Simulated scan of single mutants.
Amino acid sequence: MIPSEEIQVNTINHLGLIAGIVDDIGLEQIINEILGCDNRELVTPGQVVKAIILNGLGFVSKPLYLFPQFFEDKATEHLLGKGVEAKHLNDDKIGRVMDKLYAKGLSSIFMLIALSVVKKHQISTSFSHLDSSSFSVHGQYLDIKAITDNQQNNVETEPIPIKITHGYSRDHRPDLKQFIIDLVVSEDGGMPLFLRAGDGNEQDRAVFGQVAKQYESMIDFETILVFDSAFFTANNLQLMSESKWLSRVPLSLKTAQKLVDSVDSKESNKSSIKGYSWKEVESNYGGIKQRWLVVESQKRKESDSKNLLK
């Protein structure tokens, strides 16, 4: 019988599953190859990133200097590797790794990891869907003008890569400042393929074309990019003139509105999906030759007619 004083109990909870997935995709090895390892380090950059992921999915929210506390009652060696202790995961170590990640480029690192998963699990990338979302934050967050003024007054401030400010809030918190995340996912399981952080007041229509071109420049496979109507501007169409893409045409365009109003149901083709019909027309909007597909739903048409009669 083992004496009770020699028994040490640590928790894993759901973190074992997350650690297993991280190991399966080889994230730790990829990070170590990108950032490099020093034989004198007790914890590798890959292990630090793995620890950050476990902490982020541990349903806690604490300052960075309290990071080691999260792992004090966890089976750290089992989750992160032999010899790794909670005290090794201090804010200095984490900060240095974060600085290296930023210097190398988070978008490119994310892409390398994603493509590794795509190849390993044979995920289809025939279609790539691009969209954005806003993330609200609490705090003052100096704007660019304030930072410039402080620098002129010799006040030390740390540079910020994006502008955290007020903008259109997807989570209905216009009172909070925010930043934007542009994300490309595959149609096969919604696998994240590309990530980019943007200013809080950034508009989709102003950047989607550039984001799509950046994504295309980093992949080694053919794909059809899918956008919502925010993409559909003359500038974006010209940027994507050599690419394959699919987007909804916004009815805010007079050309689109006139087309919808002029379509005769009798001239439309019946869809294989019951209750739908369609008509194909050519367009040269923005100086780019396109095929527009006008789709009509019989149920929607009947519903709209009833609303007009009320």
Rank of each mutant, 00 (worst) to 15 (best):
residue 116 S to Q: 09
residue 190 G to A: 13
residue 94 I to S: 01
residue 3 P to A: 06
residue 25 I to K: 03
residue 77 E to P: 01
residue 220 D to I: 10
residue 177 K to D: 02
residue 272 S to F: 09
residue 147 I to W: 00
residue 16 G to Y: 01
residue 252 S to W: 14
residue 70 F to D: 01
residue 101 L to P: 01
residue 299 K to N: 10
residue 226 V to Q: 12
residue 234 A to S: 15
residue 255 T to P: 04
residue 310 K to S: 13
residue 81 G to H: 02
residue 49 V to R: 00
residue 138 H to D: 04
residue 224 I to P: 05
residue 235 N to Y: 14
residue 283 S to R: 11
residue 153 N to S: 12
residue 266 K to R: 14
residue 19 A to M: 00
residue 204 D to W: 07
residue 296 E to M: 12
residue 9 V to K: 07
residue 286 G to L: 06
residue 276 Y to W: 07
residue 263 V to K: 12
residue 31 I to K: 03
residue 59 F to G: 04
residue 86 A to L: 01
residue 169 S to D: 04
residue 131 D to Y: 05
residue 182 D to E: 14
residue 198 G to F: 06
residue 110 F to A: 06
residue 22 V to L: 04
residue 169 S to G: 03
residue 212 A to Y: 07
residue 35 L to M: 03
residue 140 Q to E: 13
residue 2 I to T: 11
residue 77 E to C: 00
residue 177 K to S: 02
residue 131 D to A: 04
residue 37 C to W: 02
residue 115 L to C: 06
residue 93 K to L: 06
residue 243 S to P: 11
residue 112 L to C: 10
residue 60 V to E: 04
residue 183 L to N: 07
residue 112 L to V: 13
residue 128 S to C: 09
residue 92 D to C: 03
residue 164 I to G: 04
residue 289 K to C: 11
residue 25 I to G: 04
residue 242 E to K: 15
residue 183 L to V: 09
